[in-house]
Nucleic acid binder design. Structure first.
Lengths: 194, 194
DNA sequence: ACCTGAACACCGTTCAAGT
DNA sequence: ACCTGAACACCGTTCAAGT
């Protein structure tokens, strides 16, 4: 079942970057293998020598983004108290979602073939957050309990607020006007004032 | 700018129902105008006399689903204490998301042309939830504060937990094993024990 | 007014052939 | 081993023509 990861050739990386750029510009429908090939300077079906199909190319784009997210989370852990690191991580999550909606939707979208590479990149990113949550609990800044479950609560709120904001379903247009960052702070305030 | 809603002809309703069935069976890609037409018994471009394009047909599917959601929310308000109604509404939200992933993703997905019909259906559904939240606040069962914002917090969590569960990003496979319903109850417990 | 069949442009994927 | 060009099946959309 398990396959060793292919080496990252120059072309491989170029295809992923071209696909990511097209995704950002016009969504998944704009990521055509013909345009990807054209931008990299190969024929429209050269990608098939590196990826089984279009979905696998997009999965590689998503995995690269998840690795970037994990590295960003690791950077935030240094130089901040644990609970503040958690707050900054969740804010960064929402900020990136709003700034790059197409990448956000791709990364957390539906994957028919559960790529192992994708799953492990996501696990790594979440594990960093779990560590900071655990440290914040040890500091008495977050309520005790299963840290995985508390992390899931925090992540679910940050994710849901971001996704609803993107689709315009977060609040009525004139009213309230709470953005994802506000809701993250609301939840943390409720959790710290227990 | 504003256009009067077209009358709901038999064919119109049939097209929407056929599109919804195809969506459930195989996602948005399976909703081809050719197959929709075939199931209803018309040619593959008869739908263009009722909807400007494929996206407008899918928007009508989403709007119908949002209206169903609003009616379901209204039913839950009767016969329950306010805070319990809120809890049941959020649980129903997550249950429907898990049971009908494609419809969930469509309903809360990206809409390039902000259909007024879609927006008002969503506003109606959320307004019912806001009313129950307000009543629960008056009962002293939920913390005081802007009810729109508190509703956004609750909805964002239910939405995010559902969406992450669907994409398998809610928690590591073996660990924690919190499902959306658990997280909803966790949040409500934190809010009521203030 | 509403529908049909043909046609167009486009895309993912396959394949025989090249180096 | 990797790439190319042609080809296939499919789809959204348009359009001239029918009733």
């Amino acid at each position: 079942m398990w396959e060793p990861p292919k080496p990252f050739t120059i072309l491989n990386r170029g295809l992923i970057e071209a696909a990511a750029a097209l995704l950002e510009e016009g969504g998944p429908a704009a990521v055509t293998l013909r345009e990807v090939g054209r931008r990299v300077g190969v024929s429209h079906n050269a990608p098939y020598k590196h990826f089984a199909d279009k979905e696998e190319l997009l999965a590689a784009v998503a995995a690269a983004e998840l690795r970037r997210g994990r590295d960003s989370v690791l950077r935030l852990r240094r130089g901040h108290a644990a609970v503040e690191a958690v707050r900054l991580m969740l804010h960064a999550y929402a900020r990136e979602a709003i700034r790059h909606p197409e990448m956000f939707r791709l990364t957390y979208g539906p994957w028919r073939n559960g790529s192992a590479e994708l799953a492990s990149a996501a696990d790594d990113a979440r594990a960093s957050l779990v560590q900071s949550v655990t440290a914040a609990q040890a500091d008495g800044e977050l309520p005790a309990g299963d840290p995985e479950r508390l992390t899931a609560l925090l992540l679910a709120l940050a994710h849901g607020a971001s996704d609803l904001a993107l689709s315009g379903h977060l609040a009525r247009k004139g009213k309230g006007h709470a953005d994802p960052a506000d809701l993250i702070d609301d939840l943390l305030a409720q959790l710290t004032a227990h």
